[in-house]
Structure formats: C-alpha cells, structure tokens
C-alpha cells in the first residue's frame, strides 16, 4: 500500500512558524481531497524534541506525525531523518555552520539519513554551494519540490538531480496552516514509523508529488511611466 507523506513542515515550535500542529492536521482532514497525504514529518529548525508524543493527535485525526529536524550547514539547509540521541550528542543542532559532509556521513553511520532541502534556493541551497565548492559525497536524495519555492528554484533542484543522479523527494516547508501538504513524497511501500521512513528513503521506491493548485495567470502589470503616458 502506497504512503504519501509531507516530509518538510514546521509547527510553532520553530521560531518563524505560526502553525499549531493540531490546526495542520485539521486542515489536512478538511482538504484531503486536494492533498491526500497520510501524514506529515515535523522538521523543526535547529532542534529535535525527542520527548514530544503526538499519538493522541494522530489517533484523533487518523494521520501520522513523524519527527525529524532541519539543520543548517556549510552547504545549506539539510533535513535529518531518524534522529537519535547519539546524533544530538555528536552534533549541536543549533549550530548554523555544521559540516554538511560530516553530517551526511555520521547520520548515515548512526542509522539515519540527511537530505539537503530546497537545493535551488539562493544562499541556503546546495546548487549555489556547488558553484563554489566540490560536490558532497554520499548524498542519497534531495528535496526537489518545496512548497515555498520561488520561481525557478524547483527547476534548479531538478537539474541538480539529473546531473548527480540523486533521488528526489518533496515537502511543503509549511510555516502556515493552510500551506501544509502542498508538496509531498509518494512511497510505493507502506510507511508507518520514522525507522520505516528512513529505510524507504534509502532503499525504497518513491517520487515527489505536487498538490499546489494551478493558479490563473495574473495580468502583467503596466509600469508607471507607460500608464502615465498612455492614460
């Protein structure tokens, strides 16, 4: 049975998010016909809440809530799946200059997976860093669909995947309730836990999926000078 998960989301535990987890889950239930995800992964910025238990909310809404983290490295932002106590002792997740290569290698050795996110984004994405530094080793997958992407960012991420042969995932990167699950990842296999998610990301079959609504085009604006001259 296939599983669809939003692999990248931020609840109000992240300093720049305004979204309570319960409101996320309620929104998904209401919009399930548009965004048919089975659950979300909370990837709070620079932190991991090992003690958080979301089972009551999972039961209430019939949706899965998994925990991961988004950390900051010398090659941009990276999602860390399968976080363990050993990892949080080895790395200070609050450090915004973590070594990406060390993170990728050590997280894999400890049983997890580090996935660079929004690689096409300026400053915080892999593409820009690859223009100035050697490519990273042992990258398995990168996020090619990001719900917060600006024009051209997802295309740059896709080009990176084609060039380096990485696997591709999607996530909403939601910081507002109504933006949850706009992008996600469809796994061929059933995923029911963070361990299962890491296993599938490493070895399974999956693809990014895009649930962003198709927008009607907004007419191009007429510059001041033209409108003044032309009336």
């Amino acid at each position: 049975m296939a599983t669809i998960l939003d692999l990248h989301s931020h609840s109000e535990a992240s300093e720049d998010s305004r979204a309570p987890l319960e409101a996320y889950l309620n929104w998904i239930k209401l919009r399930h016909h548009e965004r048919p995800v089975d659950g979300i992964v909370l990837t709070e910025h620079r932190q991991f809440n090992a003690g958080a238990d979301y089972r009551a909310l999972e039961d209430k809404f019939g949706l899965m809530v998994l925990k991961a983290s988004e950390v900051e490295t010398d090659y941009g932002h990276v999602l860390v799946f399968g976080v363990t106590g050993e990892m949080t002792r080895r790395f200070d997740f609050a450090n915004v200059r973590l070594s990406a290569q060390e993170l990728i290698d050590e997280v894999a050795r400890m049983g997890g997976l580090a996935v660079p996110c929004h690689p096409g984004r300026p400053n915080v994405g892999l593409c820009e860093h690859y223009g100035a530094k050697p490519p990273l080793n042992n990258v398995v997958a990168v996020e090619v669909l990001n719900g917060g992407s600006r024009k051209g960012e997802d295309a740059r991420s896709m080009e990176l995947v084609r060039r380096y042969g990485y696997r591709a995932v999607g996530g909403s990167d939601s910081h507002l309730v109504s933006l949850i699950a706009l992008c996600a990842t469809r796994f061929e296999a059933e995923v029911r836990s963070i361990d299962g998610l890491v296993r599938e990301l490493k070895e399974g079959k999956y693809e990014p999926v895009d649930f962003r609504p198709k927008r009607k085009p907004v007419p191009a604006a007429v510059p001041d000078e033209v409108s003044h001259n032309g009336g």
């Binding site: 305004r18 917060g148 600006r150 024009k151 910081h175 507002l176 309730v177 109504s178 933006l179 927008r215 085009p217 907004v218 191009a220 604006a221």
Partner: peptide, 16 residues
C-alpha cells in the same frame, strides 16, 4: 492565515 503573493505565486509576506 494571510499572505501577499506576486504574479508568479511567490509568497512575499506571510502572516496570521
């Protein structure tokens, strides 16, 4: 939830 987006549907300002 409120936000401002441009012609490319890029969210420039978001808020609650």
């Amino acid at each position: 939830d409120v936000w401002i987006e441009n012609e490319d549907a890029e969210r420039l300002v978001i808020g609650t």
